[in-house]
Computed example of a mutant assay.
Amino acid sequence: MKLMLLLPTILFVGLACTPAYAATEHVKIILSGNVVAQPCILKSNKLISADFGRVGIDAIETAPAIIIPIKLDCPKYSSLKISVKAESVYENSSTLGVTGIENLAYSLVLSANSRPINLTGVGSYYKKLAGDVDRSMVVKLSTLGPVTDSGAFQASAVITLEYN
């Protein structure tokens, strides 16, 4: 009888001493996201009017330029794309906007460096901006040939600020 009680104990101890093999699985974790700076705050008006007033046909090229203020307050490390899309541009030109009077055009340049601005919606990228940022533009009238018509003209363009 002692042997009968001893046999299950020996069997249990033997099983407990054998190494246990368990299946091992690995779980892969994929982390993703997008770190972005807060967008800049536009301090300029969202509707800007550039009125040239009365300009003589013979004084178009010397008409005063008008500043289009684009002033922003940007958090550190901000980046953005600025593009301008004119209602209409002259054929074979990306920088001369149509005014509605034959041979009378307008152009925009950056006020900081007089670089011509593309008016077809192709933008310029700016990175690592911080604080007060001035991307003001200057609009100027020009002629493509003799201007023989007089009268009122009007043109429009949309400036788009895309924050990255």
Rank of each mutant, 00 (worst) to 15 (best):
D149H: 11
Y21A: 13
I48G: 02
F153H: 00
I41Y: 12
S88E: 10
S142D: 15
S142F: 13
S150R: 12
M1N: 14
I117M: 01
L129W: 02
G145M: 04
C17Y: 09
V138W: 03
I57F: 12
P75W: 00
S156M: 10
C17A: 13
V138D: 06
L42K: 11
K46G: 11
P8C: 05
A130Y: 04
A155R: 03
S32H: 14
K76T: 14
L96N: 12
F153G: 00
T24G: 15
T99F: 02
I10F: 09
V139M: 12
K140P: 08
T9M: 04
V27P: 03
H26L: 09
V122F: 13
D132C: 08
H26F: 06
S79W: 01
S49G: 14
G123C: 04
L3N: 09
L129N: 01
D51H: 08
S79Y: 00
L42P: 09
V138Q: 06
K140Y: 03
V158A: 09
P19D: 11
A112P: 05
P64F: 10
L3V: 10
E91Q: 05
P116Y: 01
E61Y: 04
L3T: 09
Y163W: 12
K76I: 12
A86P: 08
Y163M: 10
T99L: 02
Q38L: 12
V36L: 08
L161T: 03
S142C: 15
L11F: 04
Y125K: 08
K128R: 07
G151A: 07
T143F: 07
A130I: 11
K128V: 05
F12Q: 12
I29D: 11
A65C: 02
L104I: 02
I67D: 13
D132Q: 14
R135L: 09
V138L: 10
S150C: 06
A50Y: 11
T24M: 14
S44K: 05
L3D: 13
S142W: 13
T24A: 15
A65Y: 02
A20Y: 03
V27G: 04
S88R: 06
D149L: 06
L72K: 00
P64C: 10
V35C: 07
C40K: 01
S114A: 13
N113G: 01
K85L: 11
A63Y: 05
A16G: 12
P64I: 14
I70N: 03
L108T: 02
D132T: 14
T9K: 06
Y21R: 11
S142H: 15
G121L: 02
P146V: 08
Y125W: 08
L108F: 12
V109H: 04
T9Y: 02
Y125S: 11
A130L: 04
I57K: 14
N118V: 02
K85R: 10
E87R: 14
